[in-house]
Amino acid sequence: MYYEFRFYAVAPGRLSDEMALVRNVAVDPAPDLPAGEEGSLWDRYEVPRPVGSWITLTGRDCPGFLYIVPWESLDQRDASLPRFWTDPLWAKRRAELTGGHTLVNSIQTLIFSPLPQALALRDKPSPLPFGGVHELRIYDLLTGDQPEAQRVLAEVDLPAAQSLGAQILGFFGMVLGSDRPRLAALLAWPDLDTQLRAAEALDSHPAVTAQREDEYARAGRFIFDRLDQYLLEPMEWNSPRPNLGARA
């Protein structure tokens, strides 16, 4: 199982255009379908429905737009997505909306895999999507530290976040992308206020503090280097479900 994180640095002022474009293509019925039939342009090329779509509230390169596409196979991905890019309806729709100007300044395409430890962090399956405010945390670490860092996040830092009100949507390792090794956690909070209070409390949480002290005592350094963090607003037309819809 792979999750393709598609992270768009949208040209400022053009977020509405970008969201309209992605929503029309990935979610809404294709414009050339006979009335009553369903299926988006993405469905036509067997591109799976993204497991969530978000805009960034804080972080680098705002306004940002993130969506995550689940794939069982990258060969399947490469048989599907590039065909979609050359679809005539898509090209036409995109040309109309961009008006020949830049719509997106840059795109990061990252492949993450769910980590085995994610199973222990799962929530009860539910057909209801998560609203609230979501948070993407990307942890940088040193090469060689990945197994221990996975354990520490899964057993200490993420349970501490859960105790402060977070639901863990996913816990991933970066497979394709820059600055590996990197781990990522996607959290859902009931609202921004809870996230802000919890993120602060997390930094002084007794279990987290004791873990950091233990790391320093053993290795003379801490296991995590930089934390890159984005607060995300889930789009109500494609809010993620618990565990990103993964089956139990």
């Binding site: 640095a9 040209a11 400022p12 002022g13 053009r14 960034t56 509230l57 804080t58 972080g59 680098r60 390169d61 705002c62 306004p63 830049t102 300044n105 802000l196 607060l231």
Partner: peptide, 10 residues
């Protein structure tokens, strides 16, 4: 665009 992207902190 006149603004090319922003880094936002709370």
């Amino acid at each position: 665009t006149l603004v090319q992207g922003s880094d936002v902190h709370l």
